[in-house]
């Protein structure tokens, strides 16, 4: 387990009487896609928030590259190489695709506070941004404001920004949310290729995508991991079938 890029150890978080995260230990190893699934209200969003730093756990640890980042802010974690995408697209809607992605490349370089140089235009940040935009197939709309993009294109833009960080690990919160069959299939292909660059912790409701992509699956129910393992193991697990998958 020591080679895990990202790991949680006994994460616990409660809101009043509700135990939203109950001793969750997960790890994400190089080259893999680790899917976290669970019914609505299982605590997936709370878990993501703790991993990415927008919520402080009551107990437990989050480690990135073996370093304890439990007390680090979301921005500090991002600079350490944790790239997240949001369930509901969080973009600078008035800004162009290129500006949104350049912001990512700039932030990773620790240069978000600079005053002396131009943000856009030549340079390796620009190149990195363009490469990320091309990679997700938004090259044709690079100069359009994010507000003018379709829902599917905005989902791709989320991924492009994450890519521009040249991250150590991706955390993706329902990247397929709201995508149709075709969009979902395209994004599945894209994520499939991404895992070699950095492993992906994938929270997803789209079971076709999960089974197509995941190397490992963890099942979260009522804040606890009730099963974790290879796809076929989890699929066969009786508890999981009862709790979540229904009778497949």
């Amino acid at each position: 387990m020591s080679d895990a890029v990202l790991s949680t150890h006994g994460l616990r978080k409660s809101f009043g009487a509700l135990l939203a995260t109950d001793g969750v230990s997960l790890d994400l190893r190089p080259g893999e896609i680790h899917a976290v699934i669970g019914p609505n209200g299982a605590g997936k969003s709370t878990l993501i928030a703790q991993i990415c730093g927008s919520l402080v756990p009551d107990a437990g640890q989050v480690r990135l590259d073996g370093i304890d980042v439990t007390a680090a802010s979301p921005a500090q974690r991002a600079r350490r190489g944790l790239a997240r995408t949001f369930q509901v697209s969080a973009l600078a809607m008035e800004d162009s695709v290129l500006e949104n992605v350049t912001l990512g490349a700039t932030g990773r370089a620790g240069g978000g506070y600079g005053l002396l140089r131009r943000a856009l235009g030549r340079g390796d940040r620009h190149d990195r941004a363009l490469a990320a935009i091309d990679r997700v197939g938004l090259g044709g709309v690079a100069d359009m404001p994010a507000a003018a993009l379709s829902h599917g294109q905005r989902r791709l833009l989320e991924v492009a920004i994450a890519l521009s960080l040249a991250p150590r690990a991706f955390v993706m919160d329902e990247p397929m949310a709201g995508l149709g069959g075709e969009g979902s299939a395209d994004l599945t292909l894209l994520l499939d290729a991404l895992r070699t660059e950095a492993p992906i912790l994938l929270v997803e409701h789209d079971m076709d995508a999960v089974f197509a992509l995941a190397d490992r699956i963890s099942v979260l129910v009522a804040g606890r991991v009730i099963a974790s393992g290879r796809v076929d193991e989890v699929r066969a697990d009786r508890q999981v079938r009862r709790a979540y998958l229904g009778d497949l």
């Binding site: 990415c52 927008s54 802010s73 979301p74 921005a75 500090q76 991002a78 600079r79 790239a83 997240r84 949001f86 969080a90 973009l91 600078a92 809607m93 008035e94 800004d95 949104n100 912001l103 990512g104 700039t106 932030g107 990773r108 620790g110 978000g112 506070y113 920004i161 521009s164 960080l165």
Partner: peptide
């Protein structure tokens, strides 16, 4: 426009 977006790319 979106503070969470800025934080997510490593800028406070």
């Amino acid at each position: 426009q979106s503070p969470a977006r800025v934080a997510a790319v490593g800028i406070s």
